[in-house]
């Protein structure tokens, strides 16, 4: 165990623990945007900054708590003038990208300061023009009527972790944007929808109707559950994962309820929990995201 000081209190932490996790464990509220349990931390949004000192009287350093690990004797302060300034500035800057995002608005209220005041008019990122006439719409953005992208990179990191690598951050600086290669609908997309579900601002839109799922400018035919007929997974995804996981297509595309029912029939009175190791609500992606 490692002993450190957090806002004046002595706390214990295990070797290699992140400051963010320690602080949250002892009840501190630390805002984050780009942190996601399924992927490595990036330190990109800078909302989770805290001030640390190696010695109580030493000079303070402002560091992201999602990356900084515990050290014996470390003095951590989660609310200082500097920390507040960075957090308020970050939220205000991000609100320019996604003025309508409910998540950002509540963050603005939480960190206070000028960030909650009216922000400037949002600026559209410039086109990356791939030899098309200017003003050409990015095909993959027809669905980006969402709240605005804050470039946290959760979607691209999840997509890479899933092994699809369909979308990526393209361009650099303030003009960077997330899209399929060259702004086209991403060919490698399987329609899994993990990006849309994880997007903190709701920028990535996923629409489903009539057995068709639309995302990133692509359309995916949905396979219906063999039991009840509810649409479960895009065919492309199901076929790929059935090969990869060695599970039959029928088994993979059973909806959670029918799955539970059929398992129960198979195993009699087994507790429902066992079946959750198979595929449930967030199930299909679980095995993939790792």
């Amino acid at each position: 165990m490692i002993e450190l000081r957090l806002d004046g209190e002595l706390v214990l932490a295990s070797e290699g623990e992140r400051l963010l996790d320690v602080a949250r464990r002892v009840g501190r509220r630390i805002p984050t945007l780009c942190d996601h349990p399924a992927v490595e931390p990036e330190g990109a949004c800078r909302l989770c900054v805290v001030e640390v000192r190696d010695r109580a009287e030493g000079p303070g350093r402002v560091v992201p708590s999602c990356l900084e690990r515990v050290q014996p004797g470390l003095d951590v302060r989660t609310v200082t003038q500097e920390v507040k300034l960075v957090r308020q500035t970050v939220v205000r800057l991000l609100l320019r990208r996604a003025p309508e995002s409910a998540a950002l608005r509540s963050l603005a209220e939480e960190v206070g300061g000028k960030s909650s005041e009216a922000v400037r008019e949002p600026t559209e990122p410039a086109e990356i023009n791939w030899g098309k006439s200017s003003g050409a719409v990015w095909a993959s953005e027809e669905n980006a009527g969402g709240a605005g992208c804050v470039l946290c990179g959760i979607c691209t990191r999840l997509c890479a972790a899933a092994g699809y690598d369909a979308i990526s951050i393209q361009g650099r600086g303030a003009e960077a944007r997330v899209s399929g290669p060259g702004g086209e609908p991403p060919e490698a997309c399987t329609g899994c929808g993990v990006c849309a579900r994880a997007c903190p601002t709701g920028h990535i839109l996923l629409a489903e109707s009539g057995g068709v799922r639309r995302i990133w400018g692509r359309r995916f035919e949905m396979i219906r559950c063999g039991g009840c007929g509810e649409a479960t997974l895009p065919r492309e995804l199901a076929e790929l994962e059935s090969r990869r996981l060695g599970v039959t297509l029928v088994e993979l595309t059973h909806c959670p309820t029918c799955k539970r029912r059929s398992s129960a029939e198979k195993f009699g009175e087994l507790p429902a929990r066992r079946t959750r190791e198979g595929l449930s609500e967030s199930g299909p992606m679980k095995g993939v995201a790792r």
Binding site: A44, L93, L94, R96, V150, A174, E175
Partner: peptide, 9 residues
């Protein structure tokens, strides 16, 4: 490079 908010925006 566009990775972190303070520098990029």
């Amino acid at each position: 490079c566009g990775k972190c908010t303070p520098c990029r925006d």
